[in-house]
Design a protein around this nucleic acid. Sequence first.
DNA 1: GTCTATAAACAGATAGAC
DNA 2: GTCTATCTGTTTATAGAC
Lengths: 221, 221
Amino acid sequence: MSTDRGEPARQRLTRAEAKARTRRLLLDAAARVFARKGFAGASVEEIAESAGFSIGALYSNFGGKEALFLELMAERGLGRVSEAAQTLDRHEAGTGEAAAELGRLLVHVADKDTDFAPLQAEFWLYAVRNPHVLDTMATALREPRQALEGLIDTWLAERGAPADVPADSVATVVAALFQGLVRLRRVDPDSVPEELFGQALQWLFSGIGAAPAPARPADQD
Amino acid sequence: MSTDRGEPARQRLTRAEAKARTRRLLLDAAARVFARKGFAGASVEEIAESAGFSIGALYSNFGGKEALFLELMAERGLGRVSEAAQTLDRHEAGTGEAAAELGRLLVHVADKDTDFAPLQAEFWLYAVRNPHVLDTMATALREPRQALEGLIDTWLAERGAPADVPADSVATVVAALFQGLVRLRRVDPDSVPEELFGQALQWLFSGIGAAPAPARPADQD
DNA sequence: GTCTATAAACAGATAGAC
DNA sequence: GTCTATCTGTTTATAGAC
């Protein structure tokens, strides 16, 4: 309290606030560097310097490289998936409009937020390689998918599909398709035009409405 | 030629054959280790030992760690995607049966061939981070997708969908969905039951057949 | 709380023996 | 053609100054 001196005191940060700010800056830098170099390929030195600090600051705020990565994973493990649900919630009516909006989201994630998909892939790889993290990720991923599920319930009712169709399955399909298209677009943009995701959703929902009870896929033998 | 001595000469390998065998063993070991540790996380020592050789043998057969990785990528970059198309080609008639077959393929890739998806993710990350490899991968991925496209053309005709629907878009959607579901199943198997992929395809194709010309997604303003 | 300097371990790659 | 030994650079993590 009495330690501040002739300093201009530009922002007046308590030590706790300063430390929190450092942590935030380090976390953001870590997201950048991990996305661009991968978990193993990134060095703590590059992360610290990218945040404008030195290695010492990093170790004073986090247990180490792995702890920093895990904290980042807990913070943005499920990324924009929950954002997506919220964005779509505003377009309750009009599946077509919502589909177009989803198309824009895909383009944004794939083209603009260039660090997002690689970081997500890095999280996935880490989880697959570290079984005890796998469960954490599984439950973390279920949350945003349930948000999607609520939305899909609405769409389904709107389309006149019977309660017969399990909304959680549809939500899983939509989420998987989104991820797959984002990844593909990063490698070959021409093969995934902006409208493709919306188009696919139209096909999907139209098909769900058309075939009410496809419980038995095909038993023709 | 005159170097072999009292050795039992079990298989009689020429030096060229022996070297080819070493390369193959190293390549296979590299696939295992890269899948489990990642490109940066894997050490050449572990790869060499996993193949039953020493570091020297690796460097005598490949330019180095990166060259080994790139060769592996060229060899199995597109993985079972082309296999999938061939498998399905046998079930020309009966979309339902083909869908069930695809479901089994997904389960196999996700559950049995545990190294496949992580290795594929590693390839993708490498391509995204090395632009000059990106183009190579884009063209490599187009090939199996065209095989899928031919198959889809058949299904579409069978379903009575007009030529209106672009088969390449459908192929892209199917491929992206497959990849997305495989990844999700590795993390949360319960959320991706064995039949889900086939089910989703049924919905999709049924929807394509139902809505003949959805060229303009939604213009209601 | 953050920085500088350093310790200790490990990586990729090479040289020469066999 | 493959192995052993080694060189060189880099890495994580820590200790002590400020």
